[in-house]
Structures are given as structure tokens and as C-alpha cells.
Write a protein that binds this DNA or RNA. Sequence first.
DNA 1: CGTCTTTGAGTTATATATAGATCATAAGAT
DNA 2: ATCTTATGATCTATATATAACTCAAAGACG
Lengths: 112, 112
Amino acid sequence: MSKVSARTYSRHSKEAIRLLALLIRTGRKELEMTSQEVADRAGISRGLLQRMEKGDPRCELGATIEVASIVGVKLFDVESTSLSKNIRQAEEKLTLLPKSVRKKAKAIDEDF
Amino acid sequence: MSKVSARTYSRHSKEAIRLLALLIRTGRKELEMTSQEVADRAGISRGLLQRMEKGDPRCELGATIEVASIVGVKLFDVESTSLSKNIRQAEEKLTLLPKSVRKKAKAIDEDF
DNA sequence: CGTCTTTGAGTTATATATAGATCATAAGAT
DNA sequence: ATCTTATGATCTATATATAACTCAAAGACG
């Protein structure tokens, strides 16, 4: 096979990525940091930061979140302090859900 | 050179990634979708979805956001409708900021 | 209890992201 | 106007993410 991907994204995803890129760029400028400074602090190359600020979907999640964090963009618009609280809540909720998702007959969905 | 990366992440970033992973997993189960279903809809492999739900930072941003969108996790806790509004706001703000960040002498910061 | 399905984990081949470099241009500062 | 630096763009080598597959174990449910 050739091309593995050439991935497609929903409109919503595209917008979310674009917004994140804009927030990163705006945040960096508001902090008056050069792209090299941010890249250094994030431990990434300047080129990668440029791709992030252009809204390239094919960047590593971790690197992107690290950069966002550095320039003051909060993902879930949740305070740093309450992140761990949310984590605990999500963990709890997860234990209450079934380990496996079991598919019923699904006559309606699949037969038509 | 060998190892390019072995990246490090701030505590905050680690938590954000972990939370995102948990929200994805929880969201999927709440929708009663199997990992295969979500992977198919997102156009990714089941293995990649598993990594996402384990909180692997080295997944593609775009793929992760697509999955989050599918299972109903909203990133900036912003409604789908207001995403474009936020984009426009960020774009506007960006035009008001200087194109280049210019570093002053910065005697205070650097000399100590 | 028995069966079917979901999930977790590991492997391999291939496509691709990344770092690091260079160059040209734009944009601040003097 | 000139100088200096930040930015944008492109290229290459290398590390690595991904898809696809397989297998084993666990979970749901009759």
C-alpha cells in the first residue's frame, strides 16, 4: 500500500484545531515570547511550533498541549488546580461503567 | 544521533492529557460504542484509539480531537456553535498584536 | 456454565513527523 | 535609511507513529 492516511476531519474538529492554533499564537505574542523561546521551553523545534501555530493537525498531542500550557492556553478552560479533581471524577465515573460495551441485536440500526 | 526525543511534559500537561484520555474513554462508554466503532468513525485504527484512551501523548492532535468530538468531549468547553465566533475573536486580536516579537535589552531578566 | 465479543497487548512494514540546518524576507529598533 | 532579529519556508536524515494483523484474556449475557 501507499498512502496510509490523508486523514479527514469533521468541521468541528477543524475549527477546534484552528482555534487552538490561534490561541497559541495569540498567547505567545501576548507574553511577548519569540517562537524560538517558546520552542526551547517546550523542548521542540521552532519549525514544529510554526506548524502548530498554522493549525497543522499532525502534531503530537503532548507537544501541543505543552506549548499551550506554556503560553497560557487552557484546554478545558479548567483551572490548573481543578484538573486533578476532574481526573478523579472521571476515574470514578469510569469504574461505574461496564468494562466492555456489549452490542445488542441492533435490528433497527443495521437492518435499515 | 540516536534518540530524537524522549520528551518531557510539565505536570500540568500530563494532567491535561490524562484527563482528556479519561474523558474520551468515559464518553465512549456512555455512548455505548465499542472501540472499533469509534475507531472506524474517526478513520483510525483500534490500536491508536487504545493509546489515546491510555493517555499516550504521542498521538496526532487531529486524530485525538476528532475522536474527542465523536464521543462528545468538548475541548475548550466551548459550544460547537461558538467555536467560529471564538476563532474570529482570536483572529481579530491577532491583527492588533505586533507581527514580530522584539526583544528589548532585558537587563533585569537576563543579568540576574 | 458456555459462548460470543470486546478489549488489551504485541509485532511488523511503511509512511511520516521531527530536529536541525539554511535562506530570504519582513518587521522592529536606532 | 540602516541594521538587526524574528519569522516563514524548504530540505534532509532519522526516529517514530500508524495501520493491520494476531493472540490471549476478560467480560457480558443467555
